[in-house]
Structure formats: C-alpha cells, structure tokens
Amino acid sequence: MLDGVRLAVTTLTVLPLRAGRVDRSTAAVAMSVAPVVGALLGLALAGLHAGLRAAGSPELVAAGLTVAAGALLTRGLHLDGLADTVDALGSYRSGPAALDIMKKPDIGPFGVVALCATVVVQAAALTAAGPWALVTAWAAGRLAVSVACRRGVPPARPEGLGAMVASTVPLAAVAAGAAFVGAIGVAAVPGRPWQGPAAVAAALFAVVLLLRHAVRRFGGITGDVLGAAVELAVTLTLVLLTLAPGRS
C-alpha cells in the first residue's frame, strides 16, 4: 500500500519521494488513489489562486498563473500526453502507425491547437470558478486515470507505462473514487449541490468515450492516453461547473 501511494505521488506530481517497489500490484494501488492525489493538487492550486486574488492580481492573470502552476506540479506530462494523443487521432491512422506518431518528440498542428485550447479554456473557467470547483476538477482529472486503468481496458503496447497500469484497478475502487470526487463536488457550486456531481459524471462519460475510441484506434491505452484523459476531465468539469443560466 505504501509503495503504491509513493508511486501515485511520484507519477502524478513532481514531489521527489523515495522510490519503492514498482510492479502491477503497486500500480493498482497508485491508480486507485489517484483521485486523492488530484484533490490534494487541487487544494494547493486553490490556495495559490486565492492568494493571488487576495494580493490584487487580476482575475485572468491569477487564473493563468494557476493553470501554469498546475502544469509545473505535474511536469506538464498530461498536457504532453494530450498533444500526442490528439496528433495521433488527427492523423486518421490506426494501430502501430498511430502509436509511432505518439512516440515522436515533436508536436503537430492538431496537438498545438489542443494544447492552446485546453489552457485557454481552463484559465477562462477559473475566472468564474470557486475554490471547491477547482479542487473538484483536479480530482476528477485524476479519477479519469482510475477509470482508464480499470480492469478490462487493455494496453496498446506490451511495454511502457500503459502496459504496467492497464487493467489494474478494480471496479470497486473506481466506484469509491467516483463517490469521493462526487462528494467534493457537492460544495463546488454554492446553492447548487447537484451541479458538481453532475459535472463529474458528464466528464467521466466523455473520458469513457475517449477510451473506447483509443482502444479502437490504438488497440488500448498508453501513458499519453492517460494524460489526454486527465486534461479532458479537468477541462470539461471546469466548464460545466461554471455554467450559470441567466449569467450575462
């Protein structure tokens, strides 16, 4: 259990914890507790965002710096995975040909557009999101990792991060993670306790659709697909949490 928690922290953040045992059993623990790591990241970012606003930072500047800090705290790995995945999907290739595109060090036009759109939308949403909305979104992003690694989802390659973590998370752990993030989401929108859980559910549905497409096109998941799932869930959750009918 302790090695799994260490693996979750070192994989999902920049914190340099001492490495422990790394195998599929520890990967199962790591991917199961990913939503908790996401919630802790969200708390740190919510504190930063609140501090910047209290110091007099303009809303958009504070939001942009918070999104940048989120990328730094995760080494930018999820954004990189998003770009690679979108480039591969945009190529209309399948199987090994698509996987080769994902392994290239450069970023194509599809990936650039995906990165820019994601960062802009996240920053714009943060200008209207409260602290618990931010925590909910980042926790939902890491819940997407648990969903992607649930049993029954195959790896696209026989080696790499995807192969180590694929099909390791039992459905009971996914359900527990969803309940945890949904509970946080109750406080995400003051006066609307249903909106947070609904946003999380919608984001997870989008992640499931992405995973189904990835399995069909690539043969399974990779580390890049996990990153894409994280960013999709974070972005969509933020967008849905900031919807307010009647707002001009």
Results as ranks from 00 to 15, higher is better:
Gly162Val: 00
Val135Ile: 04
Val135Arg: 11
Arg18Pro: 09
Gly47Asp: 01
Ala198Lys: 05
Ala163Asp: 11
Val135Phe: 02
Gly51Glu: 10
Thr74Met: 06
Asp224Leu: 01
Leu82Ser: 02
Ala201Glu: 15
Thr74Val: 02
Arg216His: 13
Pro245Asp: 10
Leu243Trp: 13
Ala179Phe: 09
Asp84Cys: 03
Leu161Asp: 00
Pro154Ile: 11
Thr237Trp: 05
Ala129Ser: 14
Pro197Cys: 08
Leu12Asn: 05
Ser91Gln: 06
Leu99Ile: 04
Val174Met: 01
Leu79Pro: 05
Val186Ser: 10
Ala201Pro: 15
Arg212Gln: 09
Thr237Ser: 08
Thr13Lys: 00
Val112Pro: 04
Gly130Arg: 13
Leu65His: 13
Asp23Gly: 12
Ala44Gln: 14
Val147Thr: 03
Ala98Leu: 10
Ala175Lys: 11
Gln122Met: 07
Ala198Thr: 09
Leu79Thr: 00
Ala8Tyr: 00
Gly42Gln: 10
Gly90Tyr: 11
Gly56Pro: 12
Ala166Glu: 03
Val67Cys: 14
Gln195Thr: 10
Ala163Glu: 12
Leu48Ser: 04
Val234Ser: 15
Ala46Arg: 02
Gln122Pro: 04
Leu238Trp: 12
Pro158Trp: 06
Gly108Gln: 09
Val37Asn: 07
Asp84Lys: 04
Gly130Ser: 12
Arg75Val: 00
Gly111Ser: 07
Val174Leu: 01
Ala166Thr: 05
Pro158Ser: 13
Val230Met: 00
Gly95Glu: 08
Asp106Lys: 07
Ala139Gln: 08
Thr237Ile: 04
Arg21Glu: 15
Gly177Phe: 09
Ala139Cys: 05
Ala71Gln: 13
Thr11Lys: 05
Glu159Met: 08
Gly191Ser: 06
Ser32Pro: 01
Leu161Thr: 00
Thr11Ser: 02
Asp87Ile: 06
Leu204His: 15
Ala183Trp: 12
Ala175Tyr: 14
Ala124Pro: 02
Gly108Lys: 08
Ala199Gln: 11
Ala228Trp: 06
Arg75Ser: 06
Gly223Trp: 04
Leu73Phe: 11
Arg157Met: 03
Ala68Tyr: 13
Asp106Ser: 11
Gly38Asn: 05
Ala202Trp: 04
Gly47Cys: 08
Leu41His: 10
Ala201Ser: 14
Thr11Ile: 02
Lys104Glu: 15
Val67Met: 14
Phe110Trp: 13
Thr168Phe: 03
Leu15Tyr: 14
Val86His: 11
Val121Pro: 00
Asp87Lys: 07
Arg151His: 10
Thr127Ser: 05
Ala68Cys: 13
Ala140Arg: 00
Ser57Pro: 00
Ser32His: 01
Ala187Tyr: 15
Ala19Thr: 06
Ala140Phe: 01
Gly191Cys: 08
Gly42Arg: 13
Gly196Trp: 06
Met164Cys: 10
Lys104Arg: 15
Asp100Ala: 15
Pro170Ser: 08
Ala178Gly: 09
Ser94Ile: 00
Ala8Pro: 11
Leu243Tyr: 13
Gly223Lys: 09
Ala183Asp: 10
Val67Thr: 10
Pro58Phe: 07
Val145Tyr: 00
Ala8Arg: 02
Ala244Leu: 09
Ala175His: 08
Pro96Cys: 10
Val169Cys: 09
Val189Asp: 15
Pro35Gln: 01
Ala176Val: 15
Leu89Arg: 12
Trp194Tyr: 14
